[in-house]
Design a protein around this nucleic acid. Structure first.
Length: 196
DNA sequence: CCCATGATGCCCT
DNA sequence: GGGCATCATGGGT
């Protein structure tokens, strides 16, 4: 398991380092593993796309001002949850949004969580769209509001390094933040490019 | 494949 | 009351 010091760094470094790592999700004696392939960094002090732009503390953003290595889970568009990992020391407001992953273990349970259907009943389109978005990922991993503030050094949600490194990390502009003026152009989105 | 649209509720002003 | 770090769907190409 990655320890708290992993998260106690600039969100842009953590965002890149999380690519290729494994999220482990445990509940009800079940286990799910996925490999992260897309992240985005958010740094409140300088980032108009951050929920806490200008270091503004509200009930919702409070968790991001706390110590590193905890989740920030928020509700969006009345329907979906998105999960971030809080980075940097207490008092600094930054986080990494987990935007996408690929299945590693217990794809059957992920399929049931997402579609209420067994994996062998899924269409190609549904398989492709299992984990490729922040809302989809939370749905497949059974993560919602109650997991806001979860300790990533606990046993419900944590990250492992299995040594996989056969890829490079591509940097690009973040998605769906057109309102964020100059922050639109920050290259704070990180995606896995496999060596194939 | 692409694009446009509606769903739906919480947050913050 | 406006807007949102999204997604599924449906129709056109």
């Amino acid at each position: 398991m990655l320890d708290r010091s992993f998260y106690d760094r600039d969100a842009r470094i953590v965002g890149q380092d999380l690519i290729g790592k494994i999220i482990v999700r445990r509940y009800d004696d079940k286990i799910i593993k996925v490999r992260i392939n897309e992240t985005e960094a958010y740094i409140a002090e300088i980032d108009k796309a951050s929920h806490a732009y200008g270091n503004k503390i509200t009930p919702r953003t409070k968790i991001m001002f706390g110590p590193p290595g905890f989740t920030y889970v928020y509700f969006i568009y009345g329907m979906y949850y998105c999960m971030n990992f809080v980075t940097e020391k207490e008092g600094t407001c930054s986080a990494v949004l987990i935007r996408g992953a690929e299945p590693v273990e217990n794809i059957e349970l992920m399929s049931l969580n997402r579609y209420k259907k067994s994996y062998n009943e899924l269409s190609k389109y549904q398989i492709k769209n299992l984990l490729n978005g922040p809302g989809k990922l939370c749905n497949a991993l059974n993560i919602s509001k109650e997991h806001n503030g979860n300790d990533l050094t606990g046993n419900e949600i944590y990250v492992e390094d299995d040594g996989f490194s056969d890829f490079i990390v591509e940097k690009s502009k973040r998605i769906n933040i057109d309102y964020a003026e100059e922050a639109r152009d920050f290259l704070w989105r990180y995606t896995m490019l496999k060596n194939s």
